[in-house]
Design a protein around this nucleic acid. Sequence first.
DNA 1: GTCAACA
DNA 2: TGTTGACAACGCAAC
DNA 3: GTTGCG
Length: 298
Amino acid sequence: MEKNIVASQIKAGNRLIDISNEDKILFPKSKITKGDIIDYYLKAADILVPFTKDRPLTVRRFPNGIHKDNFYQKNTPEYYPDWIDRIPVEKSDKSVIEYLNCKNAATLVYMANQACIELHPWLSQLPNLNNPNKLIFDLDPSTTNFDLVRETALVIKDAFEEHGLAAFAMTTGSTGLHVVAPLKPLVNFDHVRDFAKYLADELVSQNPKHLTTEIRIERRGKRLFLDYLRNSWSATSASPYGVRAKESAPVATPIFWEEVKSKKLTSQKYNIKTVLKKLESDGDPWKNFNKNRVKLKV
DNA sequence: GTCAACA
DNA sequence: TGTTGACAACGCAAC
DNA sequence: GTTGCG
Ligand SMILES: [Mn+2]
Ligand SMILES: [Mn+2]
């Protein structure tokens, strides 16, 4: 008797994507399979793809599950299909990285089948790769004190608004939060990063006991790290609606500021089983993200 | 996860 | 035809 | 020039 090895296929957009090993368990404790991740990304594509389209994308792949060897992938292998779009970017040594452009549901599903769990896009977008069109304050706690993260996010929201920036909040699905401001892509990464560092240092000076911009973990102590370095050339950060490689498959989730005020909030509050239901029932907290792009003033 | 090299 | 091994990141800041 | 970091 011949074994049935006919690969299954999934329709994404107007393409049929070959799927392999959909029952392979990638999250052993929570028993989540590669098929579950593919299914999530297919359903999330409409809300997710606008955050990855036309941005160089680094992906993090876990072919043998989240507790086994994994790797970041920047270059897109030659053997990926022609219809997968690439964004060439010159490195400092003049060699070129062919970054993936995750511009449609088919690409997202193809990558999910590659055991790609995490998505880390750039902060800039074609045709302005040199100039970020968002600014991110990445809040990385050194302890489990999430109240400090929430309260600091609210302080940053006020600071952004004092500088004419709109502020949007997101759980990262790991330990912290992001506060994000949409920008017009008018100035380069160094400029935006310098502004972020200036503002971060300002906040640290107002609360030096609990906040820090120290890069060395050892020097942070128990303070909350204000990671302004996300706003650097070629730096990436977790994509909205992207899955994190942690048990239960938490999802980086745009949230309302009212949620940030709640003690019940955690970084991993939403996951692949809950995030799209939340979006459906509560609406899109970042609905106006693209309507609030402003020029950064120093 | 995929491919090239090899038994 | 089946198995094995190689391969899949990099820029910035601190030291 | 190397190491730590995300
Ligand atoms: Mn973070
Ligand atoms: Mn960080």
